[in-house]
Design a protein around this nucleic acid. Structure first.
Lengths: 234, 234
DNA sequence: GCCCCAAACCTGTATGATATGTTTTCTTGA
DNA sequence: TCAAGAAAACATATCATACAGGTTTGGGGC
């Protein structure tokens, strides 16, 4: 909304009508929306228009659609967010460096929050990914996936879904640049040191020390950014 | 992408094909995409499917569409991002408080970057909004709009479009809660003090003092959040 | 060389048809 | 009486076609 309102066209109006319906009826995740035929009657437009509206909301993952079933309100999902970021990067309107600055800013906060708020299960999960990185240090791809899961778990443990949302939106970019950063760490020793950085973070979270956790996270990002710069990525 | 791949259906495939086209061809903002008819032939699906794909990308503001013209790659825009956030808030999957924590985190960084990187024109713009808030202190709606513009200008001056993107995505939520916070500031004196907080921030940016700017921003957010809590907003 | 207009092309919307998946209802058999 | 299963009602997925406007382009006239 906010900017959809001034958009011409029946489809935008239909999108607005649907989101408004969600708001007015106070619908939550899982609740069913009217069928396309209902909407067609209610808005006095063709099925085509209603369908494009539903489809658009589905593409943004604001609603779930599947054949035979009526659409339903979706659970919070990175959905569109990651597409926007990826679009920005692939069209060179956003640099990888800028993404990392945002990640650093946010993750210094999530890690501090995680140190304060994590449950024991969350702490164990975070520690698990740090360990898995160590154990698979010979397979970059696997290390990467655990790395991403590690940061995601920390965001989760911050207990603020908006942070999770944003961090996850960046994971696509991370996947496309991670290996490059890894390769600049020439020696195996350096690679192990980088992995151990995650261990430091995990321990600080488990110890419930937000200051220390934030410091380790900052150091980790500084090293990562340096690696990307060394690799010639702006 | 990233999660669209596993989605069944021709439309998702078409969306992927289009984004892939943008990537492979190295298209940038303003560049034209194939016509719907072209895509129809290329993908061997009906125009309906292609249209729904285009429309979805348009709803996310990854592409621009208008009658008679072929679609083009869009400039970076909050687009979908704000819709995701709003959806989260209206369906009560995100609390206003959580949004403010994220804003605080990010804006403490943008304000520091702004102090370091702002051009003179940007500094003047920021100062202008602070002044306009002071001059219109009797009209909450107007103060609010200048307040939002103030924070947006700071994000702009950080010279990292990702920050701008995120801050702007929150402006819808801000609009819906701002007045509530304002009302809890019972006396006119308190309201003026709150507005003066913006002046402090502006001056620190102009002075090029990132530390001070961040401190003022933190204080500003702490007061705002306190106001919302006093108003009973979780 | 310039202007104007028509043709070609494109998107926006509507309609109807068919295929297929899901839910509800009703029947039938134990 | 009740439960299993079939049929009907409902819903989305995709396709084909049509026509109304908006935009671009190329040609003709000057």
């Amino acid at each position: 909304m906010t900017q959809e309102e001034t958009n011409p066209g029946l489809v935008s109006a239909a999108i607005q009508a649907i989101t408004q319906h969600i708001r007015v009826e106070g619908l939550g995740p899982g609740d069913l929306l009217p069928s396309e035929a209902d909407m067609t009657r209610k808005l006095s437009v063709s099925r085509t228009v209603v369908r494009e509206a539903f489809r658009s909301l589905s593409a943004m993952r604001l609603i779930d659609m599947s054949a035979g079933r009526r659409a339903s309100v979706a659970k919070l999902d990175i959905g569109a967010m990651s597409m926007v970021i990826e679009h920005g990067v692939t069209t060179e309107q956003i640099s990888v460096h800028q993404v990392y600055d945002v990640r650093r800013t946010i993750e210094m906060r999530t890690v501090a929050l995680a140190a304060l708020r994590r449950t024991d299960a969350e702490a164990a999960e975070i520690e698990k990914y740090a360990r898995l990185m160590r154990e698979n240090c010979r397979s970059p791809e696997i290390v990467m996936e655990h790395d991403i899961a590690f940061h995601e778990a920390i965001a989760q443990a911050s207990h603020n879904p908006v942070f999770s949302l944003i961090i996850n939106a960046f994971s696509g970019v991370t996947r496309r640049t991670w290996v490059i950063g890894w390769r600049t760490r020439a020696t195996e020793e350096e690679q192990i040191k980088m992995i151990e950085g995650h261990g430091d973070i995990a321990r600080a979270i488990i110890a419930g020390n937000p200051q220390l956790a934030a410091e380790h996270m900052a150091a980790h990002f500084d090293k990562s950014v340096k690696a990307l710069i060394d690799a010639g990525i702006a």
